[in-house]
Design a binder for these strands. Structure first.
Lengths: 341, 341
DNA sequence: CTGAAAGCGCTAACAT
DNA sequence: ATGTTAGCGCTTTCAG
């Protein structure tokens, strides 16, 4: 079969311990010996077996990452941040797609734990008690990204969703709108609810009455949002502005209005959420709440490495700043760029 | 520490071999014994150690997937196909991003091999001899997707890139265009070159002279393509149609023309490549060469499972059919839907 | 149907 | 600086 550390040892006339030392960069090896071993390794094409290594050392240098949807631009960008930092710290990543299905999430966590990952980075719409139990049953650190557990016990990296939604709504209010539609995500989900709350709060603070008929819930996707928009367009009092909690939905909002003969931003203003690349790839370009996606990924992975290396962590609950990226789907008057925390 | 198979065995009053059998669904266990063991497993919260299992069995039920860019919609969709089939066959996936960097690709392959993956699914712009050597040094099966090695020795799943580009160019030619711009990807890459060849061939077959100044190379991305488009717009004889080899670039082409005061498709026709969701999320919607992305992923993973299970493979070189999705960026006259192979 | 025992390839004390 | 020796937790013959 393939060449093992033992073969190298024999061939180099040393013990396997010595080979192990040179492979692992242990300095306690005489340069001459190291050279000889290295040469044999090269000649034999020896490739250390990470599985055996993992069993013996109880470390796999692998972390599990659970992502709701890898085909979503938002999470893909997050994944890049995660990956870059993981590589920087010499960790490999097992990336798993959960499709936001709680059952699949749980299975995935279980599987990753069986694989003895050194840490877990979890993204999901909700963190339930079942999740918490599983996490606790593991002896590895867990970090949440773009989500948070009800008790805030687990370390997590987020933006202030509520405030971000508040700021977006505020921008529209500042432009004089009173019929601002909210095209949001499921209220059972952490982000969905927080953003809805931010929207309501902004209305309330501005003394603008909240209206049930100005709220539609979709799944963050273009196609679904397009359908929901039909509702707004049939309203006797059509909304004059739309706050969509994803960029795809915002683009759908724009198209729905355009198809009905309205101009954006002249007749209707639209603001999105996330600031994925799509926001710059449509006309008009999209004004949107910019989440530092890459950074959220990077920071959460960095946080995880700290836990894995038993470093001291001062802030286990991280909130990254958001901004509002003003583009073409809102009118130019205001140049408000709001940043929080 | 955590509970092992040995703890379960002791607690259940059986040998670890028996526990192993029930965990692995071996039928040679008396139902009563199985029940007892299962109960102890449940009670102790036993979780099999996949690393130990992998060392003992020499199987990790894990496959390595190397992807050029997970943040690209095209590859993300492919990844979904890969994942779904992998799950179906009980394999986990280690997803790695190579950023199209040959050096990173090689390191990644090496790392995955060290982790003892049961198979490798490789996507990359080029398969060099170095790649081939590494693959050969491994004792695990390798399947290529959306790429092919020069000697066609490795199994692979693709569409007929050349023919697809030919068909796209043909559509434009059929509409009477003689100045068709080609906005393509790097010619050093397999897909980039094939598509360029298809474009040239179509021109030649139609007796339309090829012109150097109608070719621009970009990196498939919107931003870059936008810059390249500037060239076409300054030409004394502007192209009247654009064949862009990615949807992002096609959208850039549309915007470039629109910004210059032209209408699409009335003044200029544009056709893209891939048929990612973006193609339906812009106005006008994008006519494009549709690649069965999900299927390419799914089929390549299925192929890999066959190799991993030592099943007989009749077709190691798979070409999936492509179509042309007619939408709003080309004129309606022709309803040509071309399918090949 | 079940148990005993020998590894899988490597790390990590512990000696020397 | 290097070698010896136990395991790591599990699968897998081989007996019985």
């Amino acid at each position: 079969m393939s060449v093992t550390i033992y073969d190298v040892a024999r061939e180099a006339g040393v013990s396997m311990a010595t080979v192990s030392r040179v492979v692992n960069g242990n300095p306690n090896v005489k340069p001459a010996t190291r050279k000889k071993v290295l040469e044999v390794i090269e000649r034999l094409g020896y490739r250390p077996n990470a599985v055996a290594r993992g069993l013996a050392s109880k470390k796999t240098t692998t972390v599990g990452v659970i992502i709701p949807d890898i085909a979503s631009a938002f999470y893909a960008e997050l994944a890049r941040g995660i990956e870059d930092i993981a590589n920087m710290y010499k960790y490999n990543i097992i990336l798993c797609n959960s499709d936001k299905q709680p059952k699949k999430e749980l299975t995935l966590i279980e599987t990753l734990l069986e694989k003895q990952v050194d840490g877990l980075l979890f993204m999901g719409p909700r963190v339930t008690d079942e999740h918490l139990d599983l996490f606790r049953s593991a002896s590895v650190p867990v970090v949440l990204a773009t989500t948070i557990d009800p008790g805030c016990q687990l370390p997590s990296v987020n933006i202030d969703q509520r405030q971000a939604a508040y700021d977006a709504t505020r921008l529209l209010l500042n432009h004089g709108h009173t019929r601002i539609a909210f095209l949001g995500g499921p209220l059972e989900e952490f982000a969905g609810l927080s953003r809805f709350q931010g929207y309501r709060q902004a209305l309330e603070d501005a003394g603008v009455p909240f209206r049930e008929e100005l709220v539609q819930i979709a799944d963050y996707r273009y196609e679904t949002a397009l359908k929901r928009m039909a509702h707004f367009l049939t309203l006797p009092e059509r909304p004059t502005a739309v706050f969509a909690t994803s960029d795809e939905m915002a683009v759908a909002a724009i198209h729905a209005y355009q198809d009905a003969g309205f101009r954006v931003p002249e007749d209707v203003e639209v603001i999105g959420f996330d600031n994925i690349r799509l926001a710059s790839m449509v006309r008009p370009t999209l004004t949107t709440v910019a989440q530092p996606m890459y950074d959220i990924g990077a920071v959460s992975m960095r946080l995880l490495t700290k836990y894995m290396h038993n470093e001291k962590v001062t802030d286990s609950l991280v909130f990254l700043p958001h901004t509002i990226e003003i583009r073409g789907s809102t009118r130019a008057e205001s140049k408000t760029a709001v940043a929080t925390r």
